[in-house]
Design a protein around this nucleic acid. Structure first.
Lengths: 336, 336
DNA sequence: TTTATTCACGCAAACGATTACGAAATTTCT
DNA sequence: AGAAATTTCGTAATCGTTTGCGTGAATAAA
């Protein structure tokens, strides 16, 4: 394009390319006078070092990758927001990759990233991921890796998440406190540890209060139509729940849709709480009680930890596994 | 890292690096037998060409940049989704940059991108952008550029957007048909052409029906608190509107909040329609009538056009300025 | 004044891939 | 069979930066 490079700059200044390079990078081997002269002209001509040459020489890309299941989801958007913020402060660039919850796609992406294009990877794994080999290989290759939200427990890399078990416990307990006697769990199918953690929180709470779980655990999937059928069956069954704990936002929305169709009154007939980072749930009919994850902070922390690894700084123990508390925003869907 | 490179591969095969390179790229100058041998070993060793060396040599990064005001917004997430889809099919990588509606940040980003890091840029400009110089410079440098949604009319690059004027006209007309006599416009301040297009659509409709606009146009900003005050003043004024046309989703939400606080009944006392790509507006109380933009398609088209320019294919006239129609999803907030 | 140091800079070799050019070896054409 | 063309591959230059090493000059130490 503009083809203004080091050599050209050097010629204009009657200097060698190496001197110009050092001057621009603030080397102490160059006199202040020369530095000023170089920087002045570089500024004037709008010179920027070719990033590919730079990266090739230094084997450092100044770029990180964020791999996530979807972006059309407030939680992940907020994470991206946090990531972008710290990346930009560090002068880093951010590549984004979407898996659309497809294992094959996730494998392809990680495969392609193992070639120096990025200095590190942040990933929230897809819910169809059935093997860890692709992640282990990245880890073994020495490429810095950080998990966020959707963690693979068995792989020893730093992870940033929320206290899912505890939050799910409290969410379920909230329903109990509001008088629910039969509380159902709506969760996504799959092997994600995050799912089982939330399920455990739910089960722990029901056990604590000696409540039944039979026929109250519903595994849903990605298809809205199917989910609505499952929920309809649940609500029209012989012994319907009076409370629903939705492990993910999508399922709470499906529940609202079904309730509207069936004429089930929320919260009088059925109370609902759900993990969700959607602020407009406050405008729902009725307003939805949510468990909100600190998504922005999770993104920031995950990025910060990644940069620490990239810069080979040693992590303090808390950074190897940082957990951010979620909090309940109580609204009318669980009102008395 | 793994440091498996062309030279190493070549040594293993008793070939020269150039032959290996050509074989992998499917050159006709290499015998089929050699190609097979090379590809087999490359596959086995998981060889991938160093992207920086490749980019440096070819001055081609296989990367595009998407610059947008925010990601925590369904419209932009859906656009990203579309972009990522076509990029991945083309084997391209996607860098994401957020301006947070800050002009200075936008300038910095575009400045940094003018150095070969990307082969092309897609941008939706910030609403605080007051000058075009930074965009003109990108354009002059020959770096492929495409606008989407928020367009700068005076710069001659391909643009992908929706029929804002027409959609706003129809949205306003929808309110008229529902019986509104005094329709207010809530819009974001700034110089964006998209704002004036939507305003024009609103004004055209009111003119067509001979309706008044005095004191009914409210310019809002980014701060929710301020917006709510402005809307409160509007609704409590001497001559309040019975219909509201919100140019952006955020302002419809602010309006709902105010109405809830003031006890204003929607739609009986006040009808509302808004541009929005949030599907859960169907669950609002009452469900919000929206003007939905085909965000995913806009993202796909913008990316497709960008790739055409990058590959120096000539654009058909329609591609220089493609307009996707928005459509109204009628719900209870404008119900009779 | 002579000898060490330090300063300020240039030379040239990397980094890893691509590609113009050339040169054997083989095939095809007269 | 000899010339021409084709096939198949290697040599080396190149992309633009960074950096180890060397060198002359200026400065400090002896």
């Amino acid at each position: 394009m503009s083809t203004i490079n080091l050599k050209r700059l050097a010629e204009e200044l009657n200097l060698s390319a190496s001197t110009v390079s050092r001057a621009l990078r603030g080397s102490h081997e160059i006199s202040q006078e020369t530095k000023d002269r170089v920087k002045a002209l570089a500024e004037k001509l709008g010179f920027q070092p070719n990033p590919h040459a730079s990266s090739l020489r230094q084997s450092k890309s100044n770029t990180i990758a964020v791999v996530l299941p979807e972006i059309e989801n407030n939680f992940f958007s907020q994470v991206m927001n946090g990531v972008e913020d710290v990346a930009q402060k560090k002068g880093y660039h951010v590549l984004i990759y979407l898996t659309h919850e497809a294992f094959a796609r996730e494998k392809d992406i990680l495969q392609v990233l193992r070639n120096g294009r990025v200095d590190g990877i942040m990933i929230s794994v897809s819910n169809t991921t059935t093997s860890e080999e692709h992640l282990q290989e990245v880890n073994r290759s020495g490429l810095p890796l950080v998990f966020f939200d959707r963690i693979v427990e068995s792989i020893d890399v730093p992870r940033v998440s929320t206290d899912d078990t505890d939050a799910a416990f409290k969410g379920t307990e909230h329903l109990v406190e509001k008088g629910c006697k039969r509380i159902a769990l709506l969760s996504m199918s799959g092997l994600l540890s995050i799912s089982s953690r939330r399920r455990n929180g739910y089960l722990n709470a029901l056990k604590k209060y000696g409540m039944e779980t039979d026929g109250l655990q519903v595994e849903c999937g990605t298809d809205d139509e199917t989910n609505r059928r499952l929920i309809t069956a649940l609500l029209q069954g012989p012994n319907p729940p009076d409370g629903i704990f939705a492990a993910v936002e999508k399922l709470a929305i499906n529940t609202y849709e079904v309730c509207r169709q069936l004429g089930v009154k929320i919260p009088s007939q059925l109370k609902i709480i759900s993990f969700s980072n959607l602020s407009v749930t406050a405008l729902f009919d009725p307003p939805l009680t949510t468990i909100v994850q600190p998504a922005y902070e999770i993104g920031k922390e995950a990025a910060a930890v990644l940069f620490k690894i990239i810069q080979k700084k040693t992590l303090v123990p808390g950074e190897k596994k940082s957990v951010f508390p979620s909090h309940i925003v109580e609204r009318a869907s669980t009102g008395g």
